[in-house]
């Protein structure tokens, strides 16, 4: 694997399965009396969050701390005017502090890429979500969750599994990363959305697309519902929230059409009653809470594999 984790597309199948199997080992740590490993002792991980995301930041923080790394949280919610300057200046500050890894969340697509390749910092860069581009660790934890439920936690376990990703694909970094990673792992992805919420050029992605959720649901092994952000509701992408829910929401009636083993996922935070109803979110099929648990294990695996060895590592 490369020195940075910027895109789920950077991961080979071997890389991805190594992360999943490492995460599987690390997940058991939560059951032990001492939830700590010494692998990153003396390393410094900086959580650099230009956007609010308490859950992702906490997940990375827990992951780094369980590996004994020193963690610095840097909440730099930049103003729109000075945004560019603050990314570079902040990066230089972190470099001066001797950060070994920078976990970055930024509203601008490609900001982690800039951080990694601009020469501002020497540390590893982990993309914790950039604009409408990617969120690779979310995809890894989603894949890990599917792998446990549908793939017996074995290499190749997701081969041929069918996954529907439903909702605002256009603005979703989660959907992009998932589409790339699941394809790498051999799963078949169908993106389901109204045509206004599918990106231009989606036909060149390694996925199927559909406008009709009811036709897709009976055939899938996992269904992932994406959040519909409030600002999209007034953006003219669909007429009303009610119509969206009716056509693309997952409710009890639609859940009944799923196969017995099919799991329901959501990267959170959910808008209950919009893309998913409360009874579905809280049902036995829902692995939404487990996704959070798995997030820590997957992020530990990523940090360990990026920082655990020497830097000149292959």
């Amino acid at each position: 694997m490369k020195r940075h984790l910027l895109s789920a597309g950077d991961l080979t199948r071997d890389d991805a399965e190594l992360i999943l199997s490492t995460a599987a080992e690390l997940r058991d740590l939560a059951d032990r009396p001492i939830k700590k490993l010494p692998a990153l002792r003396g390393r410094t991980v900086v959580n650099l969050f230009f956007e609010d995301s308490t859950r992702t930041r906490i997940s990375f923080e827990a992951a780094a701390k369980r590996l004994s790394a020193d963690v610095i949280n840097f909440a730099a919610k930049g103003s729109s005017v000075s945004k560019g300057e603050s990314l570079k200046d902040t990066a230089l500050t972190l470099e001066a502090m001797g950060a070994d890894a920078v976990v970055v969340r930024h509203g601008a697509s490609g900001a982690p890429h800039r951080l990694a390749h601009s020469g501002w910092v020497r540390s590893s860069v982990v993309n914790a979500g950039d604009g409408t581009h990617e969120h690779p660790t979310q995809a890894l934890l989603d894949a890990f969750t599917m792998w446990r439920h549908l793939g017996q936690s074995r290499p190749g376990g997701l081969e041929g599994r069918r996954v529907a990703i439903v909702g605002d694909v256009l603005h979703s970094r989660v959907a992009r990363s998932n589409a790339l990673l699941l394809q790498t792992l051999g799963a078949e992805v169908t993106l389901v959305a109204p045509p206004t919420l599918l990106p231009v050029g989606v036909e060149t992605w390694p996925v199927e697309t559909s406008y009709d959720i009811d036709r897709v649901l009976p055939g899938v092994d996992a269904v992932m519902m994406l959040r519909v952000q409030r600002e999209r509701m007034n953006g003219g992408f669909f007429p009303t929230p009610r119509e969206y829910s009716r056509r693309y929401g997952l409710d009890a009636r639609r859940m009944a059409a799923l196969q017995d083993h099919t799991i329901v996922m959501h990267p959170g935070p959910m808008v209950r009653g919009m893309e998913i109803t409360a009874d579905v979110a809280d049902s036995e099929r829902s692995v939404i809470v487990e996704q959070v648990t798995n997030g820590v294990a997957v992020r530990m695996a990523v940090l360990y594999l990026l920082l655990g060895g020497n830097e000149s590592g292959a």
């Binding site: 490609g110 950039d130 409408t132 050029g201 060149t204 992605w205």
Partner: peptide, 18 residues
């Protein structure tokens, strides 16, 4: 808008300029 709208803008997550 940030870049030409096409397959690449969708992939890079940069708002498209059709």
């Amino acid at each position: 808008a940030q870049m030409n709208e096409g397959e690449l803008s969708g992939r890079l997550g940069l708002a498209g300029w059709p």
